[in-house]
Every structure is written in structure tokens, then in C-alpha cells.
Amino acid sequence: MTLALVSTEEDLKDLVAFEMGGELLAVPTRILREVIEPPKITRVPMAGVYSAGLINVRGVVIPVTDLRPLFNMPQKDFDIDTRILVLELNLDAGPMTIGVIAEKVHAVLSMDPETVQAVPTVGTRWPAQTIKGIGRWQDRFVNLIDLERVAEQHLGADQAADHAA
């Protein structure tokens, strides 16, 4: 039952864990392209709270999202630990490269599928369908975030990728 909640058992073996608003989140390293120190972020006016702006990663313009407002977390200022996870999401409308602000990035970890449980329907801060499951690592809860779902439902990435062309 629990395994059906995550993409594959493989994904659980290779996760990158990061911190945001005091919570520990994780995404499979399969979708991680790189972790970078925040370069200058160009704000996009009128783009809403989830948009942090645009960054230049070696000549490629990549959008950056700040998910903290989505999870009702305070937007702490950038500090020495702040990183941007550059992720390659596989959306229905095509691949999309996106940066996600993380307050701190932990090591790559491996999780025991047995510890992964479904998200309780009430009493959590997570909007519906944003978390695939919750596992345990070093006595802490690790929230397995479903970024594809988040991008499609909350960041407007459900539109055809060539919409802008």
C-alpha cells in the first residue's frame, strides 16, 4: 500500500533531502540536475507568490519557484545555507527545468520503504496531493514532495510547453 504512493522503490534509495520552514523534504536524485548557490534572481513582476524569478545557469534562463507560501511557511531571508535545487521535471506537457529554493540541503539519503506512510488527510500543513508519502530518516519525518504535481497544479505548468513559442 505504501509503495504505491511513491514512484518506484528505486526512487526511495536515492533521495536528496532539503529543509524549508523547519520541515524536511525530499525528491529523488533522478530528477536533480544540480544544487547551486543562489545567483542573482530577476523578479518577474505580476507573476504571483510562487514565482521567485529567473536565474541564469550557464547561459540558460531557468525559472525559480519559492514553495514556502504554498506550504504556509515564513519566507526566511537568504543566508549562507540557502541553495537552489535545479530539477528536471517530467510533465505531461513536456520536460521543464525549474529551480526550487531550499533553506538548507542535506546529504543524499536512502530510505526504508517500510517506513513510508500515506499522508494523513487532516492535521498536516500540506495541500492535497503535494506530498506522495512521509518516511523516516534519523528520527525525523521526511516529506516526499510530488513536484510534478505541484508544478502542474500550482505553477501553471499544465499548459502546453510550446505555449510560449
Binding site: 529567473l54 540558460v60 534562463v61 525549474i98 505548468a157 499548459q159 502546453a160 510547453a161
Partner: peptide, 11 residues
């Protein structure tokens, strides 16, 4: 010109 991602192009 670099195209914007779907996240911003709908603006």
C-alpha cells in the same frame, strides 16, 4: 530572446 517557461509565459 529566451522563451519563458510555462510558469511565466502565461503572463
Amino acid at each position: 530572446i529566451k522563451q519563458l517557461s510555462p510558469m511565466h509565459s502565461r503572463l
